[in-house]
Design a protein around this nucleic acid. Structure first.
Length: 581
RNA sequence: GAUCUCGUAGCUCAGCUGGUAGAGCAUUUGACUUUUAAUCAAAGGGUCAUGGGUUCGAAUCCCAUCGAGAUCACCA
């Protein structure tokens, strides 16, 4: 960033920086600054035991400052909170010089600087517990002004509230809006609670591949990437289900993983391209057993976070107290709409759906129509946690066929606040049935469904070796965090939500897709190989090209610095898009 | 992807039917030894998201682009 773009406040701070250095003060000292107390420890402990606070040290960021001649008050914010410090010229300066106060503290220290103080704790005339500073150390100089807000009687004025800036510069958001931290701390507490619960049951936390040659376990569009050495496409996982089941085949009887998954789909306040799920698989259990586990576990989470099973979410007070309501899909739809999906064939159902105002089309099969009715007429109205059980088989290619209800699978979702909270089934372990379900998916894929599952031959091989009957579960951790922290958007429970790049548009956007990114000198090398640009590069193996041009460069004594393999890949890609002139 | 709304100082925001930019906080300078949205006095600070157009004249009207938010679509 060039100096030309600095605003007046940034220039002032850089001036202060130079001035500090001129006075021999390192603005970024290497020395450790041992901290004896946090702001919270001081505020909570001082009243009952003042003697323990005569010699303390504390470090943090200057968040506000009131200079009153020879005395000053600063508010210092550490990881726990804020505390006031009192500085007096005579107390921090040696008798022969007022530099430390008049120059260093007053002129060269700014809001946002990180400082360390040593001194004793006392109470001011207005009754505020404060640190009487004897030693004042600069620990890190801030070169940008902090968007500090002021507060009185609980009302915050001029808070840093621009959502775009808050998400793009979460570090600033966390400094000036400390309450934002709370949701993130709760999220971690939530994860820890689940982890502890599952560990106590003896299940093994495992790690499985994020880069997968075949993506599976869910219906979604993946992110695709490429491995150069193997020269194969790889996908970022959309789920880890099929890997965890392989581990069940391998003889583990309970495995789980907190899994960052990636889906190349739309974004909304409920969707981020990367998100976290926990998946759990337990051998010799079924979905009914899993329902009990979910109830117990989520109730524990609510209590761990709020001290009670009730959580205020928007306008609703949601109770996670066991037991939760349980309904079959059939019952739920019947209750809400009067439609009996069991007794209806596809056409009757379509007519009934249309009559109820659900948008269904002629291409939709019975299962899809049921899904549409449920999504439009039932799910949004389920506020208190509710289990919906037994889904149509077509929508659940990895779930086991229902033990006594043909056409359905042993699957449940917990719905809460109108959204899916988790998804679970008795896992399909019949390899022949599983192959058939994959084939059905393949057919969907050939008909253009971009989210249809792909066939995973190795997974089928694993099933053919025999997988015990298994109960499986997936919970969206971000969604659960949103509910548990009363957050309106997924961005409020992700430190760094995905955003479009912020850099301003270039002045001439058309120039970026001119004919070639290949520098002229390298075009010569390529031509010396007898390849014509761009048509000769179309479909050419980029790794081969890389080797050849590097070789030609050496032998032909072009004397050029070789490009990276990645760059060459890019050239080939680009060449494929260019039409020969 | 669609629709609507928004983008002005470091932050939060004004800026009318078009007439060359305002406030509070922050910043700088000065005063002030227990303040707490400290106070008092003065000063500086802007490519009005970007690029076009209409106009004598555009922050304001029109078009395009970029970015954000909301709703919808998509997403088991």
């Amino acid at each position: 960033m060039s100096e030309l773009h600095l605003n007046d406040q940034e220039l002032v701070r850089r001036g202060e920086l130079e001035e500090l250095i001129r006075h021999g003060i390192n603005p970024y000292p290497a020395d450790a600054f041992p901290v004896s107390h946090s702001s919270t420890e001081i505020r909570q402990g001082f009243e009952s035991n003042p003697e323990a606070f005569t010699e303390i040290s504390l470090a943090g960021r200057i968040i506000s400052r009131r200079i009153m001649g020879k005395a000053s008050f600063v508010e210092i914010q550490d990881a726990q909170g804020r505390i006031q410090a009192y500085l007096n010229r005579e107390e921090i300066c040696p008798p022969d010089s007022t530099f430390l106060y008049d120059e260093f503290f007053k002129k060269l220290i700014s809001l946002g600087d990180i400082v360390g103080v040593k001194g004793g704790v006392f109470k001011t005339q207005t009754g505020e517990i404060s640190i009487r500073v004897k030693e004042f150390t600069l620990l890190s100089k801030a070169l940008r002004p902090l968007p500090v807000a002021k507060e009185k009687d609980g009302v915050v004025y001029d808070a840093f509230s621009d959502q775009e800036q808050r998400y793009r510069m979460r570090y600033v958001d966390l400094i000036v809006n400390p309450h934002i931290k709370e949701a993130f701390i709760q999220r971690t507490r939530l994860v820890n609670t689940i982890r502890q619960y599952l560990n106590e049951k003896g299940y093994l936390e495992v790690e499985t591949p994020i880069l997968q040659p075949i993506y599976g376990g869910a219906s979604a569009r993946p992110f695709k990437t490429h491995h150069n050495t193997l020269d194969i496409p790889l996908y970022l996982r959309i789920a880890n289900e099929l890997y965890l089941k392989r581990l069940i085949v391998g003889g583990f009887d309970g495995v789980y993983e907190f899994s960052k998954d990636f889906r190349n789909e739309g974004m909304s306040r409920f969707h981020n391209p990367e998100f976290t799920q926990i998946e759990l698989y337990v051998a010799y259990q079924d979905y009914l057993w899993m329902m009990d586990l979910v109830e117990e576990m989520i109730e524990k989470v609510a209590i761990a976070l709020h001290g009670k099973p009730e959580v205020q979410v928007g306008d609703h007070l949601i109770s996670f107290k066991r037991p939760w309501k349980r309904l079959t899909m059939t019952q739920a739809i019947k209750e809400s709409t009067g439609i009996n999906i069991d007794a209806s064939d596809e056409e009757t159902l379509r007519t009934a759906a249309l009559a109820a105002g659900v948008e269904v089309t002629a291409e939709m099969g019975k299962a899809k129509i049921i899904d549409e009715i449920f999504g439009a007429k039932v799910e949004p109205y389920l506020i208190q946690p509710t289990f919906i059980m037994d889904y149509p088989v077509e929508m659940s290619p990895l779930a086991k066929t229902h033990r006594n209800k043909p056409g359905f699978v042993e699957r449940f979702e917990a719905i809460c606040n109108g959204k899916e909270l988790c998804n679970s089934f008795s896992e399909l372990n019949d390899p022949i049935d599983q192959r058939k379900r994959f084939m059905d998916q393949l057919e969907l894929g050939q008909r253009g469904d971009e989210e249809a599952m792909v066939l995973d031959e190795d997974f089928l091989r694993a099933l053919e070796y025999g997988m015990p009957p298994t109960a499986g579960l997936g919970i969206g951790i971000d969604r659960l965090s949103m509910i548990m922290t009363n957050s309106h958007s997924i961005q409020d429970v992700l430190f760094f939500p995905q955003m479009k790049p912020e850099k301003n548009i270039t002045a001439t956007p058309e120039e970026t897709n001119t004919d070639s990114n290949i520098p002229a000198e390298w075009l010569k090398v390529i031509e010396s190989l007898g390849l014509k640009y761009p048509e000769g590069l179309k479909g050419y193996n980029p790794n081969k090209l890389f080797n050849e041009i590097c070789g030609a460069n050496k032998k032909g004594k072009f004397g050029l610095t070789p490009p990276s393999r990645e760059t060459v890949h890019h050239w080939v890609e680009k060449a494929g898009e260019v039409t020969p002139s």
